[in-house]
């Protein structure tokens, strides 16, 4: 009887394991990996050519991944760049497995449509391939001197940038240093908004929660800000009806 019990137990365990396998195998089939890396013999646009391309035309660019927002249902939004400029690739088709490999420094060949949404020029409806090309090192461009100049900032749209010596100002009537959502109608985990000044001009910066969530250093640094703090920031020069940078680093001092 003991032997029978063992056999029975094993059968039950095996059945449960196979049930789990049955679930998992379907998921694996649905998220087929993009395993091939391609040598870049395809034609692609230089940044200058991309910049000159008309809206709503198909573009192919070779770029280095700088950061990504959260992967979601076979789509991922990518901050990318080459030596000459930057790209915001909105909701690019991507399996979850490939998303895990879209790490900073990875070079990808992206094909999509150049579009504009609320002033943000981006690549949408894109697909991509990994390439064998080495990624280029992209340093933050110092835009401190351009803080007050919309046109100058527009020339750096989507680029990784830094600004130094900015002063945190109260964003709300009650002296808050930051808001959860633009009007403080949110809660922790939502986008953060905070206001900074260079002494003459005031701007609102954003911590995009899909890019840097509440468990990241930058999110927690902004939650710890006080009005009057002097800060240095880094981020991506995203655009929404004007400069709406997505901040990825904040240091006080």
């Amino acid at each position: 009887m003991k032997t029978f019990k063992k056999v029975l137990s094993l059968a039950v365990v095996a059945a449960m394991a196979l049930s789990v396998f049955g679930c998992a195998s379907n998921e694996a089939a649905e998220t087929e990996a993009n395993e091939t890396e391609v040598a870049v013999d395809a034609e692609y646009l230089s940044y200058a050519e991309y910049e000159a391309a008309a809206l709503d035309t198909e573009v192919t660019v070779l770029c280095t991944v700088m950061a990504t927002q959260s992967w979601w249902e076979d789509k991922i939004t990518v901050y990318a760049a080459d030596q000459d400029g930057a790209y915001f690739i909105y909701e690019m088709a991507c399996s979850e497995e490939d998303a895990a490999n879209l790490t900073p420094g990875t070079t990808i060949l992206v094909t999509g449509y150049k579009t504009e949404w609320e002033g943000e020029v981006e690549i949408s409806d894109a697909t991509f391939e990994f390439t064998e090309t080495d990624g280029v090192a992209i340093a933050a461009v110092d835009l401190t001197a351009d803080f007050a100049d919309d046109d100058a900032l527009l020339a750096h749209q989507n680029q990784y940038f830094s600004m130094t010596g900015l002063t945190v100002e109260a964003i709300g009537d009650n002296g808050e240093a930051f808001f959860y959502k633009w009007d403080n109608s949110g809660t922790q985990g939502d986008d953060l908004y905070f206001t900074v000044s260079d002494g003459t001009t005031t701007r609102t910066f954003t911590v995009e929660s899909y890019l840097t969530g509440s468990d990241t250093d930058v999110y927690q640094a902004v939650e710890a800000l006080n009005v009057g703090d002097t800060i240095n920031v880094e981020g991506y020069m995203y655009w929404y009806q004007g400069p709406n940078p997505h901040i990825t680093s904040v240091s006080v001092g």
Binding site: W72, E73, K75, T77, E91, W117, W182, D183, D191, Y193, T204, T206, Y210, Y240, Q241, N244
Partner: peptide, 14 residues
């Protein structure tokens, strides 16, 4: 005041 496209991306994937 800034609104975003987050609702859109979630809606499409929902």
């Amino acid at each position: 005041m800034i609104r975003s496209r987050k609702a859109l991306s979630l809606m499409l994937s929902a």
